[in-house]
């Protein structure tokens, strides 16, 4: 069993953004599989990008998204962006 993904932004958040309903789809045990292998295409990534803007006000470029191959990589990257955004908010 891989380590659970950690941070403010959770696997559950990612599941919600990708509109995952099935309990056995996109779980802790598949968090390190590639998106394509799990059946998420470029449209799924596009959906994720627009939801992040909408819900959290953070922007991931499409170029960056291409290099986020697994759910864990996406979650980690989103958490680093959220942490940076909250640091900025504290400073300003």
């Amino acid at each position: 069993m891989p380590e659970p993904a950690t941070g403010v932004f959770t696997l559950e958040d990612l599941r919600s953004m990708l509109r995952v309903d099935d309990a056995d789809e996109l779980t802790e045990s598949t968090v390190d599989k590639e998106f394509e292998y799990l059946g998420y295409d470029s449209l799924a990534k596009y959906e994720l990008i627009s939801q992040l803007v909408r819900r959290h006000g953070i922007q991931i470029s499409e170029e960056t998204m291409v290099h986020l191959h697994t759910p864990r990589q996406a979650i980690d990257h989103i958490n680093s962006l959220l942490a940076a955004a909250s640091d900025n908010a504290v400073r300003s």
């Binding site: 509109r19 995952v20 309903d21 099935d22 789809e25 059946g39 998420y40 449209l43």
Partner: peptide, 12 residues
Amino acid sequence: ARGSMPSRFIRE
């Protein structure tokens, strides 16, 4: 439809 096919076919 829900339950009879993987959810990705439903949301898409």
